[in-house]
């Protein structure tokens, strides 16, 4: 029966057709198609990996940024606290320094006043001595002349002294 006995011509042509088909496709098509498909699969895999990596980096960056901001806030608070402390210190220092300076100035003034006082006392003593000497001189001179006149003279010189001083 024909169906179960392979026909020679059909076998021959089938061989020819299949071998031609095989050589054409094996030479020009399949390796290229397989290579292209694998390249694209690789590309897609790489793309996915890249995207995942990028996402992870983005997430990291966000948390890192948050951390940085928190740190900066802390630092800011620290700095502010420090600054206010320094400010208080400076004010305190200035105050005490000013007080010391004022004390020094007033002491110096005191010394100079004392000195001036001593000077003027000395001068006064000298002048009073001189005046007394002059009066005594004049009195002695008048004594010699007139008692009454001497009295008058003393009076006069005393008033002179008064006006002089």
């Amino acid at each position: 029966m024909e169906l179960f006995t392979p026909e020679f011509g059909l076998v021959f042509w089938m061989f020819v057709a299949f071998l031609c088909l095989y050589f054409i496709l094996a030479k020009f098509a399949w390796p290229f198609i397989i290579k292209s498909m694998e390249e694209r699969a690789d590309l897609i895999d790489k793309g996915v990996a890249y995207a995942q990596d990028a996402k992870r980096q983005l997430d990291n960056a966000k948390s890192e940024a948050d951390k940085l901001i928190a740190e900066a806030r802390n630092q800011q608070a620290d700095i502010l606290r420090e600054a206010s402390k320094i400010k208080n210190q400076i004010v305190e220092d200035a105050r005490s320094e000013a007080a010391a300076e004022a004390k020094k100035v007033s002491e110096a003034a005191m010394v100079s006043i004392e000195q001036a006082r001593k000077e003027s006392e000395k001068q006064l003593r000298q002048e009073v001595g001189e005046i007394a000497l002059q009066i005594a001189e004049k009195v002695i001179r008048r004594e010699v002349a007139n008692d009454k006149a001497q009295q008058q003279l003393v009076e006069q010189y005393l008033s002179e002294v008064k006006t002089n001083n």
């Binding site: 020679f8 042509w13 089938m14 088909l21 496709l25």
Partner: peptide, 24 residues
């Protein structure tokens, strides 16, 4: 010895050409 291009042989060629066309 029969190398005739019968209906089946012709159909094999048609199928082979179709495959070449598709894959190419």
């Amino acid at each position: 010895w029969d190398f005739s291009v019968t209906k089946n042989v012709a159909a094999i060629f048609v199928a082979a050409l179709l495959v070449v066309w598709m894959v190419m």
